Every structure is written in structure tokens, then in C-alpha cells.
Simulated assay, not measured.
Amino acid sequence: MKKLSLRIRYTLITSLFLLISCTALTIISNLSANSVMQAITLSLSVEIGESAQQSPDSSPETSQEPEYISEPAVITTRASYRVFRRESIIATVLIVLIGSAATYAAAGYVLKPIVSLSREVKKRDANNFAQALPLPSSADEVQELTASFNALLAEVKRSFQLQKQFSADAAHELRTPLAVMQTKLDVFAMSGELPPEAQEFAKNLQAQLARLSSLVEDLLWFSRDYPLEPVEPVRLLPLLEDIVEELSDAAREKGIRVELHASDCVVQGQDCLLERAFYNLLENAIKYSPDGTVVELSAAVQEGAAVVRVADQGEGIPEKYREEIFEPFFRVEKSRNRAVGGSGLGLAVCKKILERHRAVIRVLPRHPCGSVFEVTFPS
């Protein structure tokens, strides 16, 4: 059942209060009117009886008990009471209805600043959550609430900026020593005078250093804000062809064939950012696909919007994880992911870049096995 709004609840409570109050007032008024009517009827009856006894024309044989109910004054009194009772009930109903309508209108006017505040809050997302809310002109509690909320947003923004700055600084400081270690290890491995055990050890170190360097690089990408200015037309076909060429060696090592089916689509954005996003998607598909399978990369225009799909023949992603896989460092199967490698930031970086381009990325199942990463750009 849908929860009632604050305006409706306030109106219902006020209407219930009006109904109880008016009903009680009507009952009390009718009881009082009934008492007055009975007193008037009794008084008239006594007066009529006394007049009949004092009449000179009356005789014991002809005198009888007077029919007080047939007297015009008594009938008029009782008729007036019935009219009063009927009109009091009608007035009660009208007061409750008019009061409820007036309460609903007044509640809408009073709650208008809160409704406006709610709409402004709903407009905030991951890209503009720290944007200050407009202060209402009325100097009341709503203005104080908005000011407090803006102060909270400013503090959250500052915390996020400090976190991003720390991540970027840490990753930047790690790049130089990692590059030096990688260079020295490469020279050491190429000396040719190492026993087989040392060569295997050096090879493992090179792989771990490459993985650490990839993590640092992804961390740098993830900590950036990715401004989209200047925006320029980006042709997807040559961009995707370059990515396929760059990852051809990685695909060849696993015996994977990458098939590109793309029309010459054009989107608005920055080619370097889009190249990084689609590079991560294709690299991820190659990394988690079994040896000897096919990875399909396609781009086409559908209903006026450019759509890019990366389809693999891997194990697939369970439905409950299709949103969480874009979170930083999230892994569906930790043991399998450790064996494959990767930083755990590739898809998070990908989603962040695509959101900057106002594109939507989602994961779809592929039959009989595998997953399809679909990216839809705004038309």
C-alpha cells in the first residue's frame, strides 16, 4: 500500500478532529433543544389546561382531558425542533467538508517549500550531489533546514575531495618507484646468467609489478573528475579499431578471436576518455573469457542513439550482481578473480567515464552462456 503524503495525513487528522467536534456539538445542541422543547410543551400544556378549567361554559359532563398534542403551538414547537435537528446535521456535514477542503488547501500552501526542497534534493545525483540547494525566501524552519543541509553537503564534498586527492597523490607517488623497479627487474631478467629458478622468480615478480602498476593507473583514473570540456564529435569506428589492435596480443595469447561489427557512429565527448572506457570493457571480456572463444564488439545506431555492445562467452554474471560489479573493488568470485588478476577498478572507472558522457551501461545475459555489456549514448 502506498504511503500517504504528509498533506493527506494532515488533512485526514484535521477532518477527523472537525468531525468529532462538530458531532459532539450537534449532539449537545440537540439535547439542549430537546430539553427546551419539552419545557415549552409542558408550559403550553399547563396553560391550556388551566384555561379549560376556568372556562364558564364547561360542565362536568362535557369536560374531558384536553388533547394537548393537537394544539397548534405544541405542533409548531415540535416541528421547529425537527427542523433544527435536520439543519444541525446538514450544517455539521457542510462544516466538515468545507473545513477539510480548506485544510487541504492550507496544508498545500504551508508545505509548498518542503515540496520544492524535496524536488531539488531528487535532482541531485553522483555528479552534482554537492551542489547547494536554493534557499527559500521565507525566514522559517524550512530555510534553516535548507541551510543546514547545504552545510552538510559542503562538508561531504570536502571529505570526498580530500579522499580523491589522497588517492591521486598516493597513486602518483607510487608510479615512479614502480617504474624504476620494473626497469631494473627487466634488466636483471635479460642478463642471461640466471639459473632457471631465478628466471622463474623474476618472471613472477614482473607479473606482480605489472599488476600493481595497473592498479595504480586505475586508481589515478578513478580519482579524476573527468571534465568534458571541450566536447567534440567522436567517431566510434576508428576508436574501437584501435582498441582491438591494442588488445590483439592479449587475445592471441588465449586463442580468443575478437570480432568487430561497427558502423561509423558519432557521439559527443572526449575520445581519450571513451577509449579508456571501451578499452576496460574489451580487456575485461578477454580476461574472463575461456580460451578459444569469441568476443564480439559491435556499435550501431538504434532509434537515434549510438549503442555499443561487448559480448563474451564466459561464465556470465548472476542477476543479483549486475549492479554491484560497477562498484570499486567488487568481485563476483574472489578466488577466480585473484587467479585472473586485475585491479577491481576497471568497471568502476568505465561507469564513471560513461556517466560523464550521460551514457547508460548495463549488463545483460547472453545465451547460452556469457554476458553482454551494453552502452547506450543519449540520442
Rank of each mutant, 00 (worst) to 15 (best):
L12C: 06
S15H: 04
L16C: 12
S21W: 08
T23M: 11
L25H: 07
I27N: 08
I28H: 09
S32W: 13
S35C: 07
M37Q: 10
V46I: 13
S51E: 12
A52V: 09
I69H: 11
E71L: 11
P72E: 08
A73K: 05
V74E: 01
T76F: 13
T77I: 09
R86H: 12
I89F: 11
I90K: 10
A102D: 03
Y104R: 07
A107L: 08
Y109I: 15
V110K: 03
I114C: 05
V115R: 11
L117N: 02
K122F: 08
K122D: 11
K123S: 09
A130G: 10
V142P: 01
Q143E: 14
F149H: 05
A154E: 14
F160G: 09
L162A: 13
E173P: 02
T176Y: 07
P177K: 01
L178H: 00
L185G: 01
A189P: 02
S191Y: 02
P195G: 15
P195I: 12
P195F: 08
F201M: 00
L215A: 11
V216L: 02
V216I: 11
F222H: 09
F222N: 06
I243W: 06
V244Y: 03
E245R: 13
E246N: 11
E246K: 14
K254Y: 03
V258P: 03
A262H: 05
Q268C: 01
Q268S: 13
Q268T: 05
Q268N: 12
Q270W: 00
L273W: 14
L273T: 04
E275I: 01
R276P: 03
F278S: 00
K287R: 14
L297E: 06
S298W: 02
Q302V: 15
A305F: 04
A305L: 04
V310D: 05
V310Q: 00
D312L: 03
G314T: 07
E315S: 12
I317Y: 00
I325L: 05
E327M: 10
P328I: 06
R338G: 04
V340P: 04
G341T: 06
S343Q: 00
V349E: 00
C350P: 04
I353L: 10
H357S: 07
I361D: 01
I361S: 02
L364T: 08
C369K: 13
T376G: 04
F377R: 00
P378Q: 03
P378T: 06
